[in-house]
Design a protein around this nucleic acid. Sequence first.
DNA 1: CGTGGCGCGCAACCAAACGTTGCAGGAGGT
DNA 2: ACCTCCTGCAACGTTTGGTTGCGCGCCACG
Lengths: 114, 114
Amino acid sequence: MSASLVEDVDDELWSAIGEPTRRRLLDLLLDSGPATATSLSEQLPVTRQAVAKHLAVLDRVGLVTATPSGRERHYRVDRAQLERAAAQLNSVGNTWDARLRRIKRIAEAIDKVK
Amino acid sequence: MSASLVEDVDDELWSAIGEPTRRRLLDLLLDSGPATATSLSEQLPVTRQAVAKHLAVLDRVGLVTATPSGRERHYRVDRAQLERAAAQLNSVGNTWDARLRRIKRIAEAIDKVK
DNA sequence: CGTGGCGCGCAACCAAACGTTGCAGGAGGT
DNA sequence: ACCTCCTGCAACGTTTGGTTGCGCGCCACG
């Protein structure tokens, strides 16, 4: 059991949420509900086009979905997919914690012997 | 309390662990203990130089520390800093989960009324 | 019913980051 | 002394986050 990988994790999802601006976009969408690229860009230190590109990335990995409405495009987070992402974050975090605890126990055991 | 930021999180730490290769390096170091850039690169699909650069990044944010020993340089993970990183992952994951649950409750309430 | 404004997408461009190859130098083993 | 092996530095190519500039379509208002 010990040897291998935390990386059952899908790298596409990770690099989607690894980007700070994209994480902030997700936060904004969670806070205020569906929104457009333009309105989101007003709440961030980047241009509308940068936001649009990030939303395209998030859309490709399924974390958000777009709904055209007149001349606007409303983006909303996809609950199921973000839940998956959150689960992966917790999984990696917990795995690291567990390993660190094991290492610590071993270190303390060695100290005792010494 | 609700409105703002998950981003007390330091972005440097996040982008350090957001990189897939760096995450794998941390996993390898956790699995097998201290190791050199060369030995790590043999277990990854990238060159020694790429690994060396990633280790330099991890070193700058304090996630690993280097110990020169003769002609080799041994890298080990820094427990305290990785613990911080793991805590941040869990924190973001949990925050998302919480918000998703709230949204779901609201959605169900609306369904009932309808 | 036209015309101005607003939101959007596309293209060109710049800078930083990830990865590569090539090369020079220093510590070890025989 | 020599050869080996690990390391660091430099040049280069490609992808990615960001910008500016432009043209199009949709809506609202006079």
